[in-house]
């Protein structure tokens, strides 16, 4: 700031050349207009923010929202869920017997464009010699970062549980993919003009008809269970309490990333299963943080308004120093 003052003398000597070509414009009203228009600008900012703050609250979730409980101790890696998922969602798939192909387990797979869920097998085995198989797909977060990130509302959290995608709103910015804490979204890079984000939508076309999601319906060992999230959490904790030697004392998805609609039970601690699709996440959704920053900074348009007022004042105060 000292440097600014040092320049002051120079400035007052320098004088101000006029704008050529418009000497007829009256110079007087500009400063008064300016104050009025700053007020208008501030009012517009407030108006805009009022509109925004209505949307600022997280969507109301139904207490009856549905979820899926996965018991990893029951999963045998038969991959029938992959087949049923592809079949139900119009994705390419072979005959069901191809699910028995064990070679796919050699490499870790992620959900992709033609495959909204995949089953992976752990490299390590437990004392009994059995590996862990884990089905992964969109986790259908309770407070989904993808929904918070989407600027045109293409990603939605349905009050009944699923996180849905509407390609007709999407502009293809892929910010949802940056935001996803589980990295479960897939993009159709190879479609020239109409690429879509691809993801599990919890078979909402089936559940709307009263059916269960395809993967749940086909699971031969009842590793998957569809029901109210509240009920499933109770069931999960009861199961842990009944078999404390079998299960690690945690339901993955109960709080991870603010909670998810897919809940997992496991024998092994989830910390050892990070690469199988269970990253260690804080109990709060990252969306909570960005939303509080965004709505904090722009609450009632206060910060931009204060800035505008400050700039206006500075403009006026320093103009007097011109010696005009």
């Amino acid at each position: 700031m000292k440097a600014l003052e040092a320049d002051q003398a120079l400035v007052s000597r320098a004088g101000t050349p006029g704008t050529p070509g418009s000497p007829e414009t009256p110079a007087g009203p500009s400063r008064r207009d300016f104050v009025r228009l700053t007020a208008t600008l501030a009012a517009l900012t407030i108006g805009g923010q009022a509109l925004a703050s209505d949307h600022g609250k997280p969507g109301k979730l139904s207490p009856d929202r549905m979820a899926v409980l996965v018991d990893l101790t029951r999963c045998v890696g038969c991959r029938r869920c992959e087949w049923a998922c592809a079949d139900a969602n119009g994705n390419p798939h072979g005959v069901i017997a191809e699910c028995d192909d064990q070679s796919v387990f050699t490499a870790r797979r992620n959900p992709g464009n033609g495959q909204f869920c995949v089953v992976n097998r752990s490299e390590t085995v437990d004392a009994a010699g059995t590996p862990v198989h884990a089905k992964i797909q969109c986790m259908h977060c309770e407070h989904p970062p993808c929904v918070s990130a989407c600027l045109v509302g293409a990603m939605r959290k349905d009050p009944t549980g699923p996180v849905t995608y509407d390609p007709s709103r999407c502009i293809g910015c892929r910010y949802c993919m940056v935001a996803c804490p589980f990295e479960r979204l897939s993009y159709e890079y190879d479609r020239r003009f109409t690429p879509r984000v691809r993801k599990c939508e919890m078979c909402r076309h089936l559940t709307a008809k009263g059916e269960v999601p395809a993967c749940v319906g086909i699971c031969p060992v009842e590793a998957l269970q569809y029901g109210r999230r509240e009920d499933l959490l109770r069931i999960a904790h009861e199961r842990i309490a009944r078999h404390p030697d079998t299960y690690t004392d945690r339901v993955y998805g109960e709080t991870e990333g603010g909670g998810t609609s897919w809940l997992y039970l496991s024998a092994r601690p989830f910390e050892t299963l990070a690469t199988l699709g269970f990253p260690a996440l804080p109990d709060r959704s990252p969306a909570e943080r960005t939303e509080s920053i965004q709505h904090g900074i722009f609450k009632w348009g206060a910060a931009p308004m204060v800035l505008g007022a400050l700039l206006a004042t500075l403009n006026k105060v320093t103009a007097k120093g011109d010696g005009a």
Binding site: T16, S22, T25, A27, G28, D322, A324
Partner: peptide
């Protein structure tokens, strides 16, 4: 052009 200080921020 004649100096017109008020136009400085024009």
């Amino acid at each position: 052009a004649s100096p017109a200080p008020n136009r400085a921020h024009a």
